[in-house]
Design a protein around this nucleic acid. Structure first.
Lengths: 258, 258
DNA sequence: GGAATTCTGTACGCTACCGTACATATGGGT
DNA sequence: ACCCATATGTACGGTAGCGTACAGAATTCC
């Protein structure tokens, strides 16, 4: 049992799932950093210097912004994941932008250190690749959802995706920002949010949204949310138990068959 | 120089880029297989047994089909890539379906053999991860395109993506099928295709489309096509020269700056 | 050669969302 | 307490794409 107590990197689920050996190797280089809402974590085409492991409550959004300024969210990353996969995938850059959608803290890790550990091709590599596949599912499903579903359903999906990465039912987020993420007009969000509020599912005012009835949202969301959620549950380590005993014995054999 | 001539696996660009050692290891297990249009290569949720390396002219489409039957294409794979990335990413399955969009031939490789080679973490791993990142870009951009662009522009994108993976300007494809891929009505495709034909960009009749004016299509397509194209060019090995001399000297330093 | 199937063309009302414009409300700053 | 910036509400015409229906054209099958 290491000098626990202070060791909160386990609050990120990827880091938490690392075996002690790997974890200890990275620990000295993990820097806890607060990130404010709206901060741009990386720009399209820019070589990544660091990767980021969000802590619970911090959400980073991957957004594509077109020449004419129109934008669309491609995926979100919270404490279940990592920002900067292009670093180990080999490209070093991506055409999208990453920005903080919910302020909080991240563990920052130097990119070449991560790459080095990745290239040992131990547990970290396995974890990150599985995470990447989950991310791919999220992106795919976003494409499908963008094609077929109404703004209201997409808003439900977005709210649930956010809620899953937050510690409370409160989110700090204006309708304008949500509109940017969803790639629709702000008025469209106002209208959809208005309906949800009228039905008692959420409450909002000036940049604060409270989820009042999660089951209600789940009843209204399109299948896209569930598909992504199940895939994340299947591919990623379980939410770490409060007192981390991981690596000792994987208490439940995950959902893997056999 | 091995018993060349017959060794056409190099017609797939990923296979072609492998160093001789790796290539020779896999060669005995690569099975050349014809695949007809419409063939389902894998179903959502089904454990993959094999992976597929399409040859030029063969295109496999990754499609998500919803409960109500509505569908949308997530990405396409041709001779630049591989079908079945979930196998080495760790999940083993995906929620999407893969089906043959343009008949042709593929090299089939047993999944566990691929995984084994991947886990040596040599050149194959590097290549496949870079390829996966390119695929991610394609998926992301599809999401963006689905959100913001007209059917006509998307049709242009789709035609160019297909053309890039075919040896000629001819594609065998009904408007009905294109509509399934794009996730729009068949009539929407008829209308858009009609416009393109009126402008002399394409010609079509009963399941056969000919691209007459590629620059014209490029002038009308949205930026999404270019973003994906450039990322593929950046991340993947160049199109193999007819007589494979790859690995010797990368004749041109790609589009990389510096 | 005729019938059946499969593709493509056209039409028409409907709806969700857009672009734009402006009104109202809320909270923070001084 | 007031002002101002910011967030939200509402309205209205425009349009792209939908759902549906059906008609004409090109292959395939017998």
């Amino acid at each position: 049992m290491p000098k626990s107590a202070k060791i909160i990197p386990t609050q990120n689920r990827l880091l938490a799932a690392l075996p002690t050996e790997v974890f200890d190797r990275l620990l000295p280089y993990l820097t806890l950093t607060p990130v404010p809402l709206g901060k741009v974590v990386y720009e399209p085409g820019a070589e990544l210097e660091n990767v980021y492991f969000p802590l619970p409550g911090c959400i980073v959004s991957m957004l594509y912004v077109m020449k004419d300024g129109a934008s669309a969210e491609i995926a979100v990353v919270g404490d279940e994941g990592m920002v900067g996969i292009a670093l180990f995938m080999g490209g070093g850059t991506t055409p999208s932008r990453a920005l903080v959608q919910s302020a909080g803290q991240v563990f920052l890790l130097n990119g070449s250190l991560l790459k080095k550990e990745f290239d040992r091709h131990g547990k970290l590599q396995v974890l990150l690749l599985r995470y990447t596949q989950a991310l791919i599912t999220q992106m795919s499903q976003t494409a499908v959802c963008n094609r077929h579903h109404s703004v209201e359903k997409q808003l439900c999906r977005w709210l649930l995706l956010s809620r899953d990465r937050l510690p409370t039912n409160e989110l700090t987020m204006t309708q304008e920002l949500i509109a940017n993420m969803l790639g629709v007009r702000r008025e469209g969000v106002t209208e959809a949010a208005g309906k949800l509020q009228a039905q008692g599912l959420i409450h909002y005012s000036r940049g604060h949204i409270t989820i009042l009835d999660r089951p209600g949202l789940e009843a209204r969301v399109c299948e896209c949310y569930g598909v992504v959620k199940r895939e994340y549950d299947r591919l990623l380590p379980e939410k770490a138990a409060p007192l981390s005993k991981q690596a000792a014995h994987p208490s439940k054999p995950a959902l893997l068959p056999g």
